[in-house]
Computed example of a mutant assay.
Amino acid sequence: MARLLIVHHTPSPATQELFEAVRAGATDDEIEGVEVTARAALAATASDLLAADAVVLGTPANIGYMSGALKLFFDTVYYPCLNDTAGLPYGLYVHGNNDTAGAVRAVEQIAEGMGWARVRPPVEAVGAVTGEVREACWELGAVTALAAAGEV
C-alpha cells in the first residue's frame, strides 16, 4: 500500500481549515491503495518521512517565513533523509494574513535541495479562507495521494 504523509502546523482556524481540506482530498473514497498519515510538524520524524511515498507540507507564513515547527521538521529530517527521498512527490499549502511568498520560497528551496518533485503549484491563502482555496487544498491532497500511488 502506498503512503502519503501530511506534515502540518495548524495553530489557527485558517490553517486547520486548509489541513482538513487536504486530508479530505487525500482520503477521498475514489482513491484506493493509499494510506494517509497526518503528523504535526513538531511530532513528525525521519522515520515517518522515509516510510512515505509522497508528502504534503502545511504551514502558516510567520514573519515572512515558514513556521518554526515546519523548519524544525526540516532540520530534523534533512540529513537522515537526504539521500533516500530524492524524487519524492510533494505538495505545499501556506496561509498568511498578509503574504505567503517568503514561506513558499523557503519551503521550495529546501524541497529542491532534497531533490523532491512538486506535484502541483503551492496553495497560497491570504486572509480569510474561501471556498476556492478549500477546493484547491482538496485537489492538492487528492493529487498528491495519487502521486504516492504512482498514478500521477
Rank of each mutant, 00 (worst) to 15 (best):
M1E: 11
M1V: 12
R3V: 07
R3W: 01
L4S: 08
I6H: 09
T10L: 04
P11H: 15
Q16F: 12
E17S: 14
F19P: 00
F19C: 07
F19A: 14
F19V: 08
F19S: 07
V22M: 10
R23C: 05
R23K: 09
G25L: 12
T27Q: 13
D29G: 11
E30Q: 09
I31G: 06
E32G: 09
R39Q: 12
R39P: 00
A40W: 01
A43Q: 14
T45N: 10
D48F: 00
L49C: 02
L50N: 05
A51N: 00
A54E: 02
A54M: 03
V55M: 07
V56L: 13
G58S: 12
T59I: 12
P60N: 15
I63Q: 09
G64A: 13
A69N: 05
K71S: 06
K71V: 04
L72S: 11
D75N: 13
P80G: 12
L82Q: 05
N83C: 04
D84W: 02
T85D: 08
A86M: 07
L88D: 03
P89C: 13
G91I: 04
G91S: 06
G91Y: 01
Y93C: 14
N97Q: 10
D99M: 14
T100E: 09
G102I: 10
V104M: 09
V104W: 01
R105A: 14
V107H: 02
Q109S: 11
I110E: 09
A111I: 10
G115V: 13
G115N: 09
G115H: 10
W116D: 14
W116H: 11
V119K: 04
R120I: 07
R120M: 14
P122N: 08
A125I: 06
G127C: 15
G127D: 12
V129K: 10
V129T: 11
G131H: 13
R134E: 09
E135Q: 11
A136F: 02
C137D: 05
W138Y: 08
E139G: 06
G141Q: 03
T144E: 04
E151Y: 03
